[in-house]
Design a protein around this nucleic acid. Structure first.
Lengths: 187, 187
DNA sequence: GTCTATAGTGCGATAGAC
DNA sequence: GTCTATCGCACTATAGAC
């Protein structure tokens, strides 16, 4: 047992989440997060480019799931249906066990505008990745980008409902429902 | 020393835009912006809570136009049509004379992720204001929020096209077109 | 690991407008 | 005189350079 306890990133994330819940994002210093994680400030910035980024650790999986969901959709599926498949693929990343964590994290993000902005940026990047995956299937612009944007709206709305609720309904269910509502509103 | 020269904010905005175009957002210090504007760093932070905010000066008009566009839409208009009216109302804020400025500003924002995040945050706030205006007309949830989100997607896409182009087509035109494309994609 | 530039804040002083 | 925009100074925390 050396001087390295395992799972440095996991400890940073948990420490940050606890402290943000206790004192708020701005009132929490990186030094405090590092201390609680049993690491140094310098190490924190080795893993994360800035203080906000610690709440977005491992979010690549998010965009990856969207992209592979689109890739694996039937070749003859319409763009919006491929997007619907992508949402299902993301839903599988968030089984009921992750509900409590997601809820705490979402509370922290909603409590602070700076974190909200970062989240919007990440989601916009995911939408861009989805649009690219659609173009790779032969979907032309502007349809590819617009279908991806529709998917992101549904995803955001569904995620907010999922984390606001008690977890009875699955995220996948809520996403499919949100997309249907969105299409009805547009019609 | 013109300590009392008029239009402090306008000078800050122009100075910032010039410097961001010349050296980029991150390589520009607030001290440099203040110096070019003939003011001090401390005064900059009297007007803006942070460095990014200078590029979003006077953007309340944006959300205000959306809200009043919805208020002034015919009482029997469907939610999406009220949103379409809101977009027209915003389009009127951006006559051809503003194209060059909008283009320069958009270039700066697109060149820096931090500025992009801030823009997304502002647009999300505008969408929330639109949704509230729709609820005030008696539109129920989730339709109000979803219609507002549809409008924001159209607005973003249209604005990107407008600032990417040469200004031949009006922003209003592009917005109406983008909303129609979006509805077609959803159908 | 250490050092430093810069963002951003609090408080108080000052210079002008009225 | 009052009111308010601007400025000066001291300070902390972030983030990057060395």
């Amino acid at each position: 047992m050396g001087r390295w306890q395992p799972d440095a990133q996991g400890r940073f994330v948990r420490a940050a989440l606890e402290l943000f819940a206790e004192h708020g994002f701005e009132a929490t210093t990186v030094a405090e997060i590092a201390a609680r994680a049993g690491l140094t400030e310098r190490t924190f910035f080795r893993y994360y480019t800035d203080k906000r980024e610690v709440l977005f650790d491992g979010q690549d999986m998010f965009a990856d799931a969207l992209v592979s969901g689109i890739r694996e959709a039937p070749a003859d599926a319409a763009p919006v249906d491929a997007v619907a498949a992508a949402l299902v693929s993301v839903g599988e990343l968030f089984p009921p066990e992750r509900h409590a964590f997601a809820r705490t994290r979402q509370r922290a993000i909603e409590a602070n505008p700076a974190l909200g902005e970062r989240e919007l940026g990440k989601l916009a990047a995911s939408a861009a990745a989805m649009a690219q995956a659609l173009r790779d299937r032969g979907v032309a612009e502007p349809t590819a980008s617009l279908a991806a944007e529709l998917g992101m709206v549904a995803l955001r709305v569904a995620f907010a409902r999922w984390t606001a609720g008690d977890g009875e309904r699955t995220l996948t269910e809520l996403m499919t429902e949100a997309l249907a509502e969105l299409r009805a509103t547009a019609a």
